[in-house]
């Protein structure tokens, strides 16, 4: 039953509804088509392919590792950006956002140019036995590079939402800045950290352009989907894509539920 309020809406309202429906269809139609295209038999068969399982597993593992590194290094930086005003802050924020705007293959090339033997850092890494090109380390490096801005921005927003006065009071009561961070700031900001973690790993798991330059092998899921598409066509790439999408959706749904569940305090 359509309420009278909706019936009374003018043409502008219906225009917004029309555009909104177009956007929804644009997003959902290809995804629905993708998810319904392969038969259950094909999906089962694909899942029995150890290469597919390995590549999806590797995607999850590397994206998770990238988000974890972002958490460890990005959290203090996000706190600094949320709390301090200093000269060059805008510049710093723009630098952090750079990985979002740089074309993906360029990211791969840029990382390889630092990790190559012509660069001091590359030589040091070589001395230490750390290989970037064609290695899991390389994939994690690339994914961290592209995912970090999403983590930092989400967590910075979270910290900004917490009044610095809470920290001031905590310190006046005798807590050090470390104590204050762990007893006040962290418990109030952890939800934004989970959101940052999701954003960062979602961005990382979908990365293709940069990964394919740095490490074609070992194969992450997007590279495998591309390879199957190139070698065998659409029909063979679809089941792998479906499994990647499903695994991602389930994981993000679980994390999102954890974040959105009502806190104990109102």
């Amino acid at each position: 039953m359509i309420s009278t309020a909706v019936k009374k809406q003018g043409p502008f309202f219906w225009f917004t509804v029309l555009c909104g429906s177009a956007v929804l269809a644009f997003i959902l139609l290809p995804l629905t088509e993708l998810l319904t295209a392969p038969s259950v038999g094909m999906l089962r068969e694909t899942l029995e392919d150890p290469d597919v399982v390995r590549s999806i597993g590797l995607s999850m593992y590397t994206a998770g590792a990238a988000a974890l590194i972002s958490f460890l290094f990005g959290t203090p930086l996000a706190f600094l950006l949320a709390r301090k005003r200093f000269r060059g802050k805008r510049l710093l924020e723009s630098i952090i956002d750079l990985p979002i705007v740089i074309p993906h293959p360029v990211v791969g090339i840029a990382i390889l140019s630092v990790a190559g033997k012509n660069h001091v850092l590359g030589q040091i890494l070589h001395e230490l036995g750390i290989r970037i090109m064609g290695s899991v380390t390389g994939i994690i490096t690339v994914l961290t590079f592209v995912g970090l801005p999403f983590y930092i921005n989400a967590v910075k927003d979270g910290f900004e939402g917490i009044s610095p006065r809470l920290e001031n009071v905590s310190r006046s009561l005798g807590a050090s800045m470390f104590g204050t961070f762990f007893r006040i700031t962290f418990p109030l900001a952890w939800r934004s950290m989970v959101i940052g973690f999701i954003m960062c790993s979602a961005r990382a798991i979908s990365e293709f352009g940069a990964v394919v330059i740095v490490a074609y092998h070992p194969m992450v899921a997007p590279v495998m989907i591309y390879e199957r598409f190139e070698a065998y066509g659409l029909k063979y790439s679809q089941p792998v894509a479906v499994w990647l999408v499903l695994v991602c959706l389930v994981l993000f749904f679980v994390l999102r539920m954890l974040t959105l569940s009502r806190p104990k305090t109102p």
């Binding site: 009044s163 006065r165 809470l166 001031n168 009071v169 905590s170 310190r171 006046s172 009561l173 005798g174 807590a175 050090s176 006040i184 418990p187 109030l188 806190p263 104990k264 305090t265």
Partner: peptide, 17 residues
Amino acid sequence: EKRGIGIVYQDQALFPH
């Protein structure tokens, strides 16, 4: 934390959690 000075703000700044 080393000064022994308490502070009370207008918005109370109670720890919500």
